[in-house]
Write a protein that binds this DNA or RNA. Sequence first.
RNA 1: AGCGGCGUAGCUCAGCUGGUAGAGCAAGGGACUCAUAAGCCCUCGGUCUCCGGUUCAAAUCCGGACGCCGCUACCA
Length: 532
Amino acid sequence: MAKFYITCAIDYANSSPHAGTAYEKIGADAIARWKRLQGHDVHFLIGMDEHSINVVKKAEAQGMDPEKYCDVMEPKFTDLWKALHISNDDFIRTTQKRHIASATEFFKRVFAKGDIYKAKYTGLYCIGCEAYLKPGDLVDGKCKNHGTEPQKLEEENWFFRLSKYSQAMVEHIEKHPEFVQPDVRRNEVLNVAKDGLEDISISRSTFKFGIPLTCDPAHVMYVWFDALVNYISGVGFAADEAMFAKWWPADLHVIGKDITRFHCLLWPAMLMSAGVALPKQIWGHGWVHYKGQKMSKSTGHLLDPWDVITPHGADALRYFMLREVAWDRDGDFTWEAFTARYNADLANGLGNLLNRTVSMIHRYCQGVLPGVGEAGTADDELKANLVAAPLDVAALMEKQDLSGALERIWDSVRRADKYVEENAPWSLSKQGKTARLATVLTFLATSLARLSVLLHPFIPATAEKIRAQLGLSGPLVIPAAWEPLPPGHKIGEPAALFPRIEAEKTDPAAEGQPAKGKPKGGGQAKGPEKTK
RNA sequence: AGCGGCGUAGCUCAGCUGGUAGAGCAAGGGACUCAUAAGCCCUCGGUCUCCGGUUCAAAUCCGGACGCCGCUACCA
């Protein structure tokens, strides 16, 4: 069984996770779970990035040590990941001993390679960016990202010879089209590499919260040089050779599109320098916008995942993110779109199909499957659709087309709903056609049983509920040939998976405000618009 | 500014190795009733941003215009 090592970017400890942070974990989790279903030995790593000047400031503001502050922040992340059913195997913090030890050893190797040197640097430093700004970053003398005035600083810093690896990076990216994906990101990165990379400062001496450089303990590692190493320190780099050999190189780094440069250029160059193999693929996903605007920590335009999870459940958020926000591009969360998706797909679609199926089995067969009887209308179409589903989903997942996979699963949901109508079990019952009724109900239950497995990577808690209602237990196995559930199989009790969301009171931020006046039956909602 | 992407039914998008357009949702109508007033069937709905060109034939190729967006080294 092949191994599959997948990571997410570790999150900055200085602010609570928002829906964008969650999106990345949800997507990666779906991939990790799918790989496990396929039989891979999966290691899924996420974590927290702590050695940042911003963490120091936040901590100071609250009168805490940075370490203490991070301890307080940790559950804000881990609690959310638990609630979202993120199946990470490990959670790394860059202040952990294991990471500091690995990062230190890593630095030593790069240093020994002669890729670290000391130089003086003068520039305009933006605290928000934790970076020196270039002329292009300035608008009226202020940072274009933060609107704050940068400080003029002169520092003696240690630099990494990133420039030395420009050519190697270009070659690697060209030789391995899958290395950076999707293509948009790949093209971007390739262009940057072709322009030539510049050496990068990788130490800071203005504060102490960080990993000291072995060559100069007055300096600590620059946050990125430190943070990227988590991917190897998390699997035992320079500590547990067997573990490291088993998992590294990573099969997939999942990151936000904004940090592709670090991951696709700096990180590989660092690895080359240290003589460590490169990850196989880096995937830069897009952004989840909120109400049409980019989410932003500085302006506070954020969607709090709990606002969705608390009233509607983790799977409602997972489903929306995975279905509505394509994994390779930006998407938008609005409460209207969320409600529409939820009701149409989860409540009316999947939820209702399960509910009517389980109810009918109770009503017509006392909750016990009678087994396959007489063949009939649409049996073959239903079977064909559900036998093809796992293969189709596998092909789509191979391309990381997460929303496409869900779309495909829902095609089966619709096919099954149609099968109900085509066979009208209620009529069969009235007419006493029990042999045919037996087949129809068995096929429906079987269809849902199969779908429950395919749904698991995306909405795991719901998949479990479906299985419970269908009376299924045991390990999840991706279904292959059509195998109807056996006669005598006992079904559980029906319960609504996703209660319909009725009113428009979904947006917690809008509560208390005058109703938005969406005319319900007035009929003139969209009339006047079309005038020429 | 340079490089790249996008602009297709009310909405989200597919189609783009050329042959006058598709899906889901939304909207309207219908027959049913197992079900979360859900589901099923039917219908409505598009000058494929605009202007030129190549071609027997272009949403699909080429040129240009307009609009939106991404990247141009340090925020998921």
